Every structure is written in C-alpha cells, then in structure tokens.
Computed example of a mutant assay.
Amino acid sequence: MHGIDEVIIERQGSAGLIRLNRPQALNSLTSPMIRAIASALGEFAADPSVASVIVAGEGERAFCAGGDIRLLHESGKRGSAEAETFWREEFRLNHAIANYPKPYVALMDGITMGGGVGLSSHGSHRVVTERTRLAMPETGIGYFPDVGATWLLPRAPGEAGTWMGLTGHTINAADAIHARLADHCVASSDLTTLIEAISVLPVAASSANVHRVISGMAAPAGESRLAAISDMIDRALAYDTVEDIQEALTRETGDFAAETSRTIATRSPTSLKLTLKLLRAGRKSASLGECLNRELGACLGILYNPDFYEGVRAAVIDKDRNPKWSPASLAEVGDAAIDRFFVPARPPLFAM
C-alpha cells in the first residue's frame, strides 16, 4: 500500500504500518495526513489478512507534536472553512481509533503532544519509551485540550488530568502510564524488534496476543512524579473554579505546588476557565463522542477568541514567548464569556 509523502502506509507480515513522515515538523498533522491515516485504517479494517495496525513517527524526535497550528491560525484570520474541516476530520479519526475493530498499537516515542495524544491514547495498545515527552499544552496558546482529551484527562486518577490540562506541562513515560494515557514502556532501541514480533503474529491474532508480545518486551518505566505527589494534586485541583485552585495551591508547601501555581498564572485566563469547565463536563459525559461534539463547538468559538491568535503569534510565529492575554486576569473572565464556547456545532459530529 502507499500513502502520501507525509504518511507512509505499508504492510509487514500480518501488520498494517502507518508511519508519520514529517520529521522536520515533528510529524505534526496536516489535513492530507489525517485523510491518509483515516483511509488506511479503513482499508486495514476491511482486509482479512491484516491482524493489527501499528502507528509510529519517523525520525528520533517525535511521534507527533500535534496539529498544524499555523493552518488553524491562518484559516481563522481569513474566515475560511479550513479550520472547521480540519477539526471535523481529526475528531472523527480520534473516534475511529477509539472504536477500531483490530488491535491498534501506537508507538509514542519522543514528543507526543496535542493531536499526537489523540492519535495514540485512544488506541487499544499504547506504548511509551524513555524518550516520550507527552503534553496537552494548549492553555499556553489560548486554546484548550481537544482531540477527545476532555474524555481522557478526567479519567486519569484523581486530579492528574486536571493538572495536565491546566498547566500543559510535559510528562514522561511513567507519568503517562499513571495518567492512563499509555499502557507499557518499551525501550526505544527495541521498537523495531517489537514491530517485527507483532507482524509475525497469525492473522487470527487477538488483542490478548498483541498484549502478550508488548508486555513481554516491556521495561519498568520508573517512578511517576504525578503518582508520588498525587495527594497534593488531588487536594489542590479538586475545585471547580481556577481561582479556588490557585488559592488552594498557595496553602500547599513544596516546590511542585509553587511551580504549578506559577505556570497556571502564565496561561490564558480564558483558556484556563474554558479548559476546567470542559474537563468537568467530560467527567460527567457518557461517551467520547459526546465530548468530541462539545469540543468541536468550543473549537468554533476559539476562532473568535483573541487569545488564540495572540498565543499562536507568541509561540509559533514571532516566538517571543510573551503573549499578552485579553482579558489578562481570571477575575475579568465572566461566566458569559465561557458560555459562548458551549454553543453546539451544527451539524454535530455524532448523533447522541
């Protein structure tokens, strides 16, 4: 099989391989890449000679650093339909991965952020390595954790997902497993051997067979910092307003709480409040589809949010890392400003 230049589609034994091939851009996703991946998944699902699918990133730096933020930024400024089309196709792909009928193995080696989490953490077999650096960093660019993260993060133990969503901090392999965003840690040097071992499984191989192969090659991920300090995270981030969380953090001792508070203070106040409300709604939701529908409505609202354009300017375009948020403080972001992000997209992605 063949993909496009930026997505290599091939067969190896009984495995279908999808390789993201945009290493110079940390394998960040474009619309053609999303379509190529979705098409390949459909073909592999229908092919009785394919037992499993393996998704990996080319190069040694990243699995996938997320979506093409510049495209979304430029589309929003022009008022074109490209951004909405991108989100609709990406979110449908996330949903397809979560409901894939065959074992779906994601090799999360290197940087795995934003859309990369959507490509991996919804899968049935999520492999991290000693090089994994995973994050949902969207509050730092005036955005919010999407790609179904409002379903995934609330299902992490305690408030670990709340901490990830608000701070956008990067976590390692042990933390990713603790947060239920990954399953096993395999040494990066063993990934080629892992692919070979999965590819020689019989066509009738079950998910349990794939699990046995991966677990047989898994190595200890080390201690999770999030697990070690979970009591503090659960205490301080259990509140339903960002203001209360910040106040609770001041009552905690130690560097972790102070670092968390300082980080939150640098993020877009609008994004922080939107993210927390979406995470709390996601915790009460019955399905990933429900969360993706809600996220799409919020995405369309983001296109009218000045913080998104300012955040992308500061992080991606000018790279001065000095965004000027508007409003600049949590106190200035009222409930009405957040409610406008909860207008449902029409048509919805999925019928509920």
Rank of each mutant, 00 (worst) to 15 (best):
A227E: 06
L191A: 00
S206A: 05
D255G: 13
S206V: 02
I264W: 03
A197F: 06
A258K: 12
I245S: 04
E247K: 15
M232T: 13
A258F: 14
S199Q: 08
L226I: 10
E252V: 04
E252W: 02
T192E: 15
C185L: 06
A187M: 11
A218S: 09
T192A: 14
A228F: 05
G222P: 00
A227Q: 08
D255Q: 11
T192G: 12
D190Q: 10
V203E: 14
V210Q: 01
E223H: 13
G254M: 00
R212H: 10
A228G: 06
D240P: 08
T260L: 01
A228H: 03
T241P: 03
R225V: 10
L191D: 07
E243F: 08
T253E: 11
E243T: 15
F256E: 10
G222S: 03
A258I: 11
R225S: 14
S199A: 07
S189W: 13
M217A: 02
T253C: 11
F256H: 11
I214G: 00
I214Y: 07
E259D: 14
Y239K: 14
T192S: 15
G222H: 03
A228M: 03
A197T: 14
E259A: 12
Y239S: 15
A248T: 04
H211D: 11
R225W: 14
L249Y: 00
D234E: 07
G222I: 01
L201M: 02
P202F: 00
A197K: 06
T241D: 04
N209S: 13
R212S: 10
P202Q: 05
I198G: 02
V203W: 15
A197W: 08
S199V: 03
S188D: 06
D244G: 09
E223T: 13
C185P: 04
S188P: 08
R212Y: 07
A218D: 04
A236L: 03
A218M: 04
H211C: 15
T260A: 02
H184A: 14
Q246G: 05
S261Q: 10
A236P: 01
D240N: 13
A248Y: 09
L201R: 00
L194F: 01
L194E: 04
R235E: 07
A187K: 07
D244R: 04
F256Y: 13
E247V: 13
T193R: 12
L201A: 00
S215A: 08
A228D: 01
E223N: 15
S261A: 15
M217F: 05
Q246F: 09
T253A: 15
V186Y: 02
E259H: 12
A228I: 03
I229C: 14
C185Y: 11
A258T: 10
D240Y: 13
E243V: 12
F256N: 07
I245H: 10
